[in-house]
Simulated assay, not measured.
Amino acid sequence: MRMSTYLRRYWQLYFLLILPIAYFLTFKYGPMYGIQIAFKDFNFFQGINDSEWIGWDAFREVFQNQDFYKTLRNTLMLNFLDLLVSFPAPLLLAIMLYEVKAVWFKKLSQTILYIPHFISWVIIGGIVYQVFGTQSGFVNNMWMALGFQPIPFLTDPNYWLVTYLLTGVWQSAGWGTILYLAALTGINKELYEAADMDGAGRLKRIWHITLPGLKTTIITLLIINLGNMVTIGFERPFVIGNVAVQDYSDVLSTFVYRIGLESGQYTLATVVGLFQAVVGLIFVLGANYASKKSTGEGIL
């Protein structure tokens, strides 16, 4: 089929691509022009083109900054713990929901689990302080009413880490089940029927049919998560964090906020952003290579 004929026949599909292409060009590729700020002594009034080139000086300044290494350590630590705790949660939820036979209960559960995803982290932060606050939190009020000492959920680094991780699971796990549930619908139902006839129990069906059927989805999401190991959202550590736990809650995104928006050092902030992008690309390529070598599957 000639290309012109194909375009005329399926022009509606290409028309639908206009908006997503425009989005990526505007918000993903367009900002790449600003990468050169990392190599310039950026002056807001002179603009990007007229600012003086300084080469790698800004990179040396960032890499000599001790706060950069502290925030990098915290970013890697929090993302690694999130990977251990938050990554399996949607998978387990999806399998449990898939095994539920009552349709009304399944729909109700999905709705309840999805809701936290649509709540702003500012609101979630307020809920966390109302529930886990040391002096005024609901949990500690109940705990102290029983005669026990309050638990420093938000002021002790170890308790704060647990609170941070569990809050992340509550906010994201329900929404993350969507991809797994979609993949589960693609598994051949005859495999489960054959397993039932062979006397396989529920756990064996999950282990030998469900998990292998989800392998490609799990690997893809794992590679994407590994690619984000040095990239972390700003809202969650900023809202839940405080001065008492700053040694753990101060991450690269809050570091960029301080030096970029608060101090006006846009060059240094761009250097950190470029560093995150390059390292993230290396992580993705490395994880994809390791996945292809070990399982024969990857995303590239």
Rank of each mutant, 00 (worst) to 15 (best):
D156A: 12
V103Y: 11
L72Y: 08
F148I: 06
F132Q: 00
V122T: 12
P157A: 04
L91N: 05
L84K: 10
Q171E: 04
M144D: 02
S109E: 00
W160Q: 09
L93Y: 01
I124V: 15
N158R: 12
T111N: 12
I119E: 02
I112S: 08
I123P: 03
W143R: 14
P150A: 11
A94E: 10
G174W: 00
V122E: 02
Y129L: 12
T71G: 00
I151N: 06
P90W: 04
F132M: 03
I127R: 04
L72N: 05
L113E: 08
G126K: 07
F153Y: 14
S172L: 09
I112Q: 03
T155S: 15
W175P: 02
I119N: 06
Q110K: 12
V162G: 07
G133T: 12
G168I: 01
T71N: 01
W121I: 03
L81N: 05
A94R: 06
G168V: 01
Y114F: 14
A89T: 05
W170A: 13
A94Q: 06
S172Y: 12
L81C: 13
A145P: 01
L165N: 09
L92Q: 06
G133I: 03
L166P: 03
G137S: 00
F132P: 00
S109K: 00
A145F: 11
I112M: 13
Q135S: 15
L154D: 04
K101G: 09
K106R: 15
V169M: 04
F148H: 14
S136C: 06
E99C: 09
I124E: 06
L154S: 05
G147H: 11
G125C: 08
F87L: 12
M144L: 09
G137D: 00
V122C: 02
V103K: 14
